[in-house]
Design a protein around this nucleic acid. Structure first.
Lengths: 158, 158
DNA sequence: TATTGTTATACTCTATAACTATA
DNA sequence: TATAGTTATAGAGTATAACAATA
């Protein structure tokens, strides 16, 4: 249940200092938010040469592993609204990294694929991803990293 | 360093199924993002009766523990830009939960405090926070929760 | 000159409603 | 009637520049 409800307020603040987070640091949601901000900041630094955002990365990685998925399948799997996925994917198409291919069995649908340039790009992207992941493993340790992934999975079913 | 760069693409997708995340699920940044979305969704559900957002929650909790902090101290501690903090705090003032108090030693600055109504509100808020945290602990276990918090702290210094 | 709070503004991310063309 | 993709739009969240008052 946690022991949050019986924490009492402390004294007045002393001006000119940077206060610490106090109780906030002990809350899972807040720790999660701050950790994600830090990790995404490292992501942005690492991927700056490719001008690639996390959501674009996730789409390219998924299409490299499983080409031919339909647009709404990719959007659903990544928890991106179909409506927001359109312009996101348009950006990848405009860069020549991916393309939409008609599906003959259902003329409403399109299947998504990487272009040859997209395959090359994805290879560079994956190398940078390994580098970025290395930054995190350096902080967590290999065991800590595995523990963290296992713990985070448990939170997906709330 | 991780073993990302040598993963090969798989076969074509089978239409009509929901694909799994594949390699994405093994990346710390992505697992962190999805876990945070799930936890924040539970936060929103839990705090819906109070109509309180995570950032507002963090400000009220900090002021309850340390009244009299200056505006930029709170903003800095919470990693909120001073410029964005203004309207955020205006919202709490408009609801009668908090107030700005002039600082006599520096007439540029203001110190932030909860109102009496804000204290009452914070008490209810903390009870709901304990409930919300209970949902997370139910998934993680008490030990898992402590491990997760320790691991997340390590990612703040990237 | 530098700092505190503020306004204005823009860009990204996310969410909803409604349209089209197919099924 | 329902579904896949799309457009338009509105709301959060976040970022920078510039200003007034004060240090």
């Amino acid at each position: 249940m946690g022991r949050m409800a019986d924490i009492e307020a402390e004294g007045e603040a002393t001006a000119g200092e940077v206060p610490d987070l106090g109780q906030l640091a002990g809350l899972v949601g807040y720790a999660l938010r701050r950790a994600q901000l830090a990790v995404f900041a490292d992501f942005h630094r690492s991927f700056a040469p490719l001008e690639l955002r996390p959501a674009q990365f996730s789409v390219l990685l998924m299409l490299r592993q499983t080409p031919g998925l339909r647009q709404s399948q990719v959007a659903d799997a990544l928890a991106i609204k179909r409506t927001n996925f359109v312009s996101l994917f348009d950006g990848l198409v405009a860069r020549g990294l991916a393309r939409r291919v008609p599906v003959d069995t259902d003329r409403r649908a399109v299947s998504l694929h990487l272009t040859p340039e997209g395959e090359d790009f994805a290879a560079r992207m994956i190398a940078i991803s390994a580098e970025h992941e290395g930054h995190l493993t350096a902080r967590l340790g290999a065991d800590g990293r595995a523990q963290l992934l296992a713990l985070l999975q448990k939170l997906l079913v709330l």
